[in-house]
Amino acid sequence: MSCFETFTGYALRSIGIGERLLPKTDFTLCDQFVLIGSGMIWNVYFAVVALSLGFFFAVALALGRSSDNPIARIPSRVFIFVIRGSPLFIQFFLIYEFFVMIPKMGWDINLGFIEITVETRWLTKAWLGALITLFLNTAGYTANIFYGALQSIPKGDIEAAYAIGMSKRQVFWRISFPTMLRLAWPSYTNEAIFLFHATALVFFSSFPAWRQEGDALYYASYFADKTFNPFVPYPIIALYFISFTLLIILGFGWVDKRLNRHIAPNK
């Protein structure tokens, strides 16, 4: 099998497109690179969706945490504390156990042009269940970062905004929110990296892999198990993660520049 054939057969194997069976013998470097790369689709999917949805929930939680109203403040505070205080794998375990207990049901939802069935059994699948766990996890950590940033906004800025007659809403959207993002961005970048790395845990210890469709670490340990040699697949997956982490750093760095573009450079 040439490397091109391997690519067409396995590049999308992790999402069920391509060859049905995994290679079993004579593993080439090409096999390992392609399949582990195919698994990265899952890692990127988890990271992108969890981070983008988690961002909004985190803003809401951070506002709740700094609110004067105890009904908003106390639950946000407890949520952030529990998420930040417990290891992710315990969160995976508990949430999976919880989802498994939910009775299997389905509802038909009519969207006008198409009717879809929403089923509770999706919750025990990684694509939804693990995603929800990662979403809650990143929301908790990010909320804490945003909360800290909200507390550090110079009081004078906000007072000045009120003084020129801005409404509460305007103050939030034009002053507090952008300043919060600007202050929180370096820590938020770290959180994005940690979350991306945490996606490697999904199939390693919590959610089951269906039809041998798993993430990059699933395939890397598959090869390590079949070849009995950890020194090839694990460095390959490390290489993939380093490259994607660099992309995150570049992307977040670009946003950081934009957030700070009104501030004179330090040097």
Binding site: L22, S205, P208, Q212
Partner: peptide, 15 residues
């Protein structure tokens, strides 16, 4: 696990 993967059944792998 590899036996089930090669059979007609759907394999689901747990840690």
């Amino acid at each position: 696990a590899s036996y089930v993967a090669s059979s007609d059944a759907t394999v689901v792998e747990y840690a």
